[in-house]
Each structure stands twice: as structure tokens, then as C-alpha cells.
Design a protein around this nucleic acid. Structure first.
Lengths: 196, 196
DNA sequence: AAATGTTTTAATCAATTGTTTAAATGTCTT
DNA sequence: AAGACATTTAAACAATTGATTAAAACATTT
């Protein structure tokens, strides 16, 4: 692995764990096992390195959603099932990602959303069309935004409140893992029942 | 208002908005309109001031929950309705609070939870007893932890993803406010349907 | 092998940041 | 009003931080 790759990987790890403001360039250099000056040599500044990590992290966070929501061959129900299951698996592997993103998106969010063409993606997605058709057919669904907030909330929120849930439920790491994995099956059934 | 009060209020504002690491003591002094040295005069250090704000913020975040969950005179259904409505109103007034707490609770969370006796509170609450009785009576409820994660997720998550929801839904501030206030009525109906 | 360009290093810089100091101002007691 | 105490201020300090520099090490080309 080249020094440049080592730095990027270390930056991702440390930024995800501590956020931009709490991260020192020296933390990244140490995590990467490289000389501090190489960070500026390859990436110019802490901010420029962060912007790269931020963009890629946000992109990876929405990659699953994009893939599933744009698959024309599966129904709305299967989309939800697939989305929830893949999302939970994804976050289990990158547990720091949700809080990192929610926290850093407090600033500069809009520019990033524009760069990723977020609004257009949703409105042009197979998911969106299926949802609109379902409403036309007379199903009493809530607005798409409520629906999105609900599916994502049920899926992502437990990871964001992990410390609290672990303490209240007295769960160790394997317990917590089991807890969120259970939700792969539970959330789709809940969603279906919600909108009977 | 005394200087000490001004500092605390300013500290709450700035810490909530930017988090501990991104906040400069000079930011707080400026926001409070006081001389920088007064911060250390009254609170010794940035960290000690932060710890006070953190404790009070977390306490205020759980005050509503404590009050509602321990009211013996109302049913489980009314508890949920009351909790959701009061929580949404509360966060509308303090929109920076959820992300601030979730973010800062990544570190030192357990000590704070212990100080607030969080686990005991839930297990001794009227809500907990009612929930257990409902299960004994044969209702197919999920574990209490799933239930908590669901209610809180549906309630709090939209505030955490506010920038994204605003962008995707093209909502201005009044639109977003309307969006979350709608959920005061919607969430309790969804919760009921989920557990038919 | 000499020359050229790239990567890495140790040392240093300038700016920022949390905190302290010592003097000045204000307030209350006697 | 004088003295005692608390509050406020401007200035400074020491440590940290992001970034730069100039030289060294390494690799590639001629």
C-alpha cells in the first residue's frame, strides 16, 4: 500500500471516530505510520483531505440505497426488505459512519447534496414511481418524506443511540450485534403493518 | 443576568451548535459578551464548563421521558401519545440538542448514564410495568429495547437528518416545522398498527 | 555512474487556543 | 470614607496545531 493510500485509510478511520474538529493531523499520521509532512505533500491540507473522505463516505452511505431503489425488477415490499437488510449489514461493518455523517452534515450539507444530485435521484428512482403508483391505486400511504424518515429512522437510529441502548439493555458487543441483526426481519414487518 | 449565567447560556448555545472540539473559549466569551478570563474565573476550565452543560442537556432531554413514563394514571397508549407530542415540541425549541447529544455521547457516555441512574429508571418505571403486563396478557410485543428504539427513532431521527430531508423534500423552515409537527399525530397511530 | 525527478524525513514556523496574571474597577461593610 | 472583598479587564504565557522548508533518501532516466 502506498503512503497516499495509507493516509487516506487512516484519515477515514480517525475522522469517522472523532470528527473533523477533534482530529489532529498528527493523529492521522500516527494511525497511518507515516511522516506528518506527507499528509500535506499528498493532500495539501487537513480540510482538503477531509472533504475527500466526507464525499466518499456519504457516497458509500447512499450506494446501497441507490442500487436497491433503482432496481426495476423488484416490488416495493422487496425493496424495503433488501434495503433494510443490506443497510444494517453495511453499518455493522462501519459503526462510526452514521454519527460521523449526521454530525458533519450540520455544515456544508447542501453543497454535498447538490454534488450528489440527491433530490433528482429520489424523484427519478424506480422506488419513487412505484410509491406514486401505489398512492394512485388508493393505498393510504404517508408522504414519501415521512416514509423515508420512518424506514431510515427505524434502521439507522439504533446505531446512533448505541451507547444508550447498550447501557439500558445491559448489552455487550455480541448482544448489541444480535439486537440490530434481529431488526433485519422485524423492520419490514413493522413497516408493512404500519400502512395497512 | 449575571456574568456567570451569561456564560452558561452562551456555552449551551455554542456547544450545542458546534460540539466540544469545534468550540473555542473565545466563541463562548463573544457570544456571552464577557471578557474571556471570566470563563475560567467562574468555571475553571472549558472542560468543566462543558461537563456541566452536557449533564444538564442530557437531563433536560430525559426529563420529559421520566415524567411521562412514570405517570401511573395513564395507559400505555396515552403514554406514547403524550411522550411523542411533548418530545417533538421540546426538540422543535432546541433543534441542535439531538445531534449534539448523540455526537458527544460517543465518549464518556457510561459515566453519565450511571450518574443519571438510567437503567434503574426504566426498570422501575410505570411504563416498564405496563409493558410487562401487556406481554404477560399475550400481546405480541417486541422486546422493550426494540420498542424504545422504534418510538425514539421515529420521533428523533427526522431532526438528526434535517438537512437531508429538507433538501430532498425541498422544504424551507416552516415546511420542515409542519412536517415534524404532523408526526405528533402520525407516530402514535403507526406504533399502534405496528403491534397489532 | 551521473543527472533528474520523486518521495520521505527532521526541524521549524506562525497562528491559534486554553489558561493565568496582575492590575483596575466595582460593591459592600463598618 | 476607608477597608475588605468580589468582579472585570487587558495583556501575556505556554502548549498545541496545521503547515512549510530544506535536506536526505530513493528511484528512474540518460
Amino acid at each position: 500500500m502506498t503512503a497516499e493510500e495509507k493516509i487516506k485509510e487512516a484519515a477515514r478511520t480517525v475522522f469517522h471516530k472523532k470528527g473533523f474538529a477533534a482530529t489532529r493531523t498528527r493523529d492521522i499520521a500516527e494511525e497511518a505510520g507515516i511522516n506528518l509532512a506527507l499528509l500535506n505533500y499528498y493532500f495539501r491540507s487537513k480540510k482538503k483531505l477531509f472533504d475527500i473522505i466526507m464525499f466518499e463516505s456519504f457516497q458509500s452511505f447512499f450506494y446501497t440505497m441507490k442500487e436497491v431503489f433503482n432496481d426495476d425488477n423488484i416490488s416495493l415490499e422487496v425493496k424495503i426488505e433488501t434495503f433494510v437488510a443490506r443497510y444494517i449489514d453495511f453499518i455493522v461493518e462501519q459503526p462510526d459512519l452514521p454519527i460521523f455523517l449526521m454530525n458533519e452534515l450540520r455544515n456544508n450539507a447542501e453543497e454535498l447534496f447538490r454534488r450528489m444530485d440527491l433530490r433528482n435521484f429520489f424523484q427519478a428512482s424506480s422506488f419513487f414511481k412505484q410509491y406514486q403508483e401505489r398512492i394512485k391505486a388508493g393505498h393510504p400511504l404517508p408522504s414519501l418524506l415521512h416514509f423515508l424518515a420512518n424506514v431510515m429512522g427505524l434502521t439507522v437510529f439504533p446505531f446512533i443511540t448505541k451507547p444508550m441502548l447498550q447501557y439500558v439493555g445491559d448489552l455487550d458487543e455480541p448482544d448489541f450485534r444480535e439486537f440490530v441483526l434481529e431488526r433485519k426481519k422485524l423492520i419490514p414487518t413493522w413497516i408493512k403493518k404500519m400502512y395497512l
